[in-house]
Amino acid sequence: MLPRRSRARPAWLLAPLAGLALLGAVWFAAGLILESDSRYGAFTGFAPVPALGAFIDLLRSGEAWRASAPSLARVGQGLLYAFIAGAPLGLLVGSLPLVERALQPPFQLLRMISPLAWMPVAVLSFPSWDGAIVFLIAAAAVWPILFSTAAGVKRVDPVWLTLARNLGAGPLGTLRAVVIPAVLQDILTGLRLALGVAWIVLVPAEYLGVTSGLGYAINDARDTLSYDRLAALVLLIGLIGYALDSLLGRLAACARWIPAT
C-alpha cells in the first residue's frame, strides 16, 4: 500500500489546476449571462472568447510588452524606495522597544491613509508624473516591509544574540551575522506583501498624466469601449502579478536561516 503522502501527492498537484478551472468556469458563465441579456450587450467583450482573442493579439503585436515595461519599471522603483526606507526602520523598531512604542502610533496612523489620498501632494511635489507614481507606490509598499521586518526581529531567539556577544560581536556585527540572516525570510515576505499592494495601486496611479503603462492602457481601452482589449489587459495584469508573487514566494521559502551549532 502506498504511503498516505504518496497517495495525496496527485491531489496536491492538481488542486491549483482545479482552482483555475473553477475560475474559468465562473468567467465562462458570466460571459454567457452578458451575451444573453441585451442590456449588457456592449460588455460582451468581457466574455472568455473575445477576451482571449484580444489577449493573443496583445502578445502578437508586442503591445503587452510595451504596456507592461513602464509599469514594471515604476513598480520596481517604488519597491526599491520602500525597501530602502522600510527594512532599516523595521530593524530599528524591532530591536528597540522604546522606539517601537514611540513610532507605533504615527506609523499606524499613516498606514491607514490610502496611498491614493497622497495623489495631490505627489503631483505638486514631483516634477514628473513618473516621480509622482513611484512615490505613491512606495507610500503603499513601505508598511508591509517595515512591519514584517520588525516582527521578524522580535522573534529572533535571544540565545543567538547572547552567543554572538559572547563571541565578541558588537552591535553591527550581531546585526550583520545574526539578525539580518534570521529575518531575511520575514523581509522577503514583507516585500511579497508590498508587491501585492503596489501592483493594486499601480493601475489607478497610472491614470495620472502618463501616456504609457498598464493603467494608461486600461483607461484607453475603457474610453474607446474596447472591452475585449480591456479584459485582455486585466488578464495580463493578473498573470504578471501572479508570476512576480510566485517568484518572491519561492525566494522567501529558500531564505529560511538555521544558525550553525
Results as ranks from 00 to 15, higher is better:
A73V: 08
R74K: 11
G76P: 06
G76T: 09
G76A: 14
Q77P: 09
Q77H: 14
Q77G: 12
Q77S: 15
G78P: 05
G78E: 07
L79S: 07
L79D: 08
L79V: 08
L80K: 04
Y81P: 00
Y81H: 06
A82G: 14
A82Y: 03
A82Q: 07
A82M: 08
A82T: 01
I84N: 04
A85V: 14
A85T: 08
G86V: 02
A87C: 09
P88F: 14
P88K: 13
G90Q: 09
L91G: 02
L91T: 02
L91S: 11
L92S: 14
L92E: 00
G94V: 08
L96N: 14
P97F: 10
P97E: 04
P97V: 08
P97M: 09
E100Y: 13
R101K: 15
L103C: 15
Q104P: 02
Q104I: 05
Q104T: 11
P105L: 11
P105G: 12
P106Q: 00
P106G: 01
L110Q: 06
L110I: 00
R111P: 07
S114I: 04
P115Y: 10
L116Y: 02
L116F: 08
A117W: 01
A117I: 10
A117R: 03
W118D: 00
A122S: 03
A122C: 02
V123A: 03
S125Y: 04
S125W: 08
F126H: 00
P127S: 15
S128C: 01
W129Q: 13
D130A: 14
D130Y: 07
G131D: 01
G131A: 02
A132T: 00
A132E: 01
A132M: 03
I133K: 08
I133C: 10
V134P: 02
V134C: 08
V134T: 10
V134K: 09
F135A: 13
F135I: 06
F135C: 10
F135P: 10
F135R: 09
L136I: 05
L136R: 03
I137P: 05
I137R: 00
A138F: 00
A139V: 11
A141I: 05
A141V: 08
V142C: 12
W143K: 10
P144C: 11
S148E: 15
T149L: 12
A150C: 10
A151E: 11
A151N: 12
A151T: 12
A151W: 00
